[in-house]
Amino acid sequence: MSGWTAGEGRHRGASHLGQVWRELVTVHPHATAHWGALRAAVGVAVPSAYVLAAGRPEWLGYASFGCFVAVYGRHATWRARLETQVGVGITLTATAVLGTAVGLARPGGVLTAFLLMFVSGTGLLLARRHGWAPAPSVFLVFAAGATASMPVTAADLVPAACVTAGSAALGVAIGQLGRLFPTDDRERTGRLPTAYLALWRDPMAARDVFCYAAGPFLATVLAVLAGFGHPSWAGVAATIPLAGATVVVQAARATLRFVGTLAGIAVTYLLLAPGPPTWVLWIAVVASMLLAELFIARHYGIAVIGITPTALLTVHLASPAPLRSLLGDRVVETAVGVLVSVVLLRVVRSSVRRVPACAGG
């Protein structure tokens, strides 16, 4: 009997690895991804060009956050897209202001970890309540971590609100341009909101909110204690496996995040090493965003090759730092983030399996 059990375990392990491998190498259909990618690229190009032309590169983060609204409502009705993108834009703006306020108090410390815990968990709750897909937690954690880590003054609260809201408004406007083309006959869907009370009564929703809150918090705290230069990057990486609907997808997303980050860092090094002028880096940011959005729903690993230069080049333009520390922090903190998330998910799954067994006597 024990031999059969061991054999069954080996078979399940091999099957699991096979499923993860298929998830790693599968590129999903195009499905009009170019429209969302074009919206995102224009959404980041215009406000970033404006702040650079105005001589305020430190506002690049604020200018870039709003473009995240382009990710939402790809296949939604125009009304549903408008409602979703406005809601996400307001949430991103509030997050940027909150992150800037935390940066005034104590930038880059454990307080940032609590902030990331709050915005990540809140992002999932809002997504479940209003039918937003994907959950905006990763964008909120990125925005909160970036703003809370910048050297800011009280005066920066104004651009945090205005520039972020302006770039989000541009993204919403771009998202509604399709109304001008009545011949567009792509199939579209509405939103599926859920009452908060129903969410609180759902034990699976409570578990997911816990994971979304705990993952970025634990990863950021570990990065702070280890003395890494950009601890919030670990928090961002920790949100990535959480979005997976199954164990297979979670494992694949963790792997793709790390491998894609390594490839993206190589691209970033090739772009930054020669010391190109600002306008060249601006073009690279826009092109990287275009690549990321072309593949974000098709193959996450390829998308990360674009996400990584987009983030790192924006950070470099806003606040130049030694290349070795910038790229090194990204590698180490990405590894910390995905490992924390994978371990957390495993612990939570084990706990959920044990509870019914104990209840049954």
Rank of each mutant, 00 (worst) to 15 (best):
A143F: 02
A144W: 00
G145S: 03
A146F: 12
T147W: 01
T147F: 03
A148Y: 02
V152H: 08
A155W: 06
A155K: 05
L157C: 00
V158R: 08
P159C: 01
A160V: 00
A161G: 06
A161N: 01
C162F: 15
A165D: 00
G166L: 01
G166M: 04
S167W: 08
S167D: 06
S167N: 05
A168G: 04
L170A: 03
G171H: 06
G171E: 07
A173W: 06
I174V: 08
G175W: 02
Q176C: 04
L177D: 02
L177P: 08
D184P: 00
R186G: 08
E187C: 10
E187D: 14
T189L: 08
T189S: 13
G190C: 11
R191N: 05
L192A: 15
T194F: 09
T194I: 09
A195W: 14
W200C: 12
D202Y: 01
P203H: 06
P203C: 01
P203R: 08
M204D: 14
M204T: 14
A205L: 11
A205Q: 15
A206C: 14
R207D: 08
R207F: 01
R207Q: 15
Y212A: 11
A213S: 07
A213F: 03
A214I: 10
P216N: 00
F217G: 09
L218K: 05
V221E: 00
V221G: 03
V224T: 00
L225V: 12
A226S: 11
A226M: 15
A226Y: 11
H230D: 13
S232Y: 15
S232F: 15
W233H: 03
A234M: 01
A234V: 03
G235A: 01
A237C: 07
A243D: 14
T246I: 10
V249N: 13
A251L: 11
A252P: 10
R253G: 02
R253N: 07
R253W: 08
A254H: 05
T255I: 15
L256K: 13
R257I: 02
R257K: 04
V259E: 07
G260H: 02
L262V: 07
G264A: 04
A266N: 11
A266C: 09
A266L: 12
V267Q: 10
V267F: 13
T268C: 05
Y269P: 12
Y269K: 13
L270D: 12
L270M: 11
L270E: 11
L272Q: 14
A273K: 13
P274Q: 09
P274R: 09
P274L: 07
P274N: 05
T278N: 09
T278H: 10
W279K: 12
V280N: 11
I283P: 10
A284R: 03
A284W: 12
V286I: 09
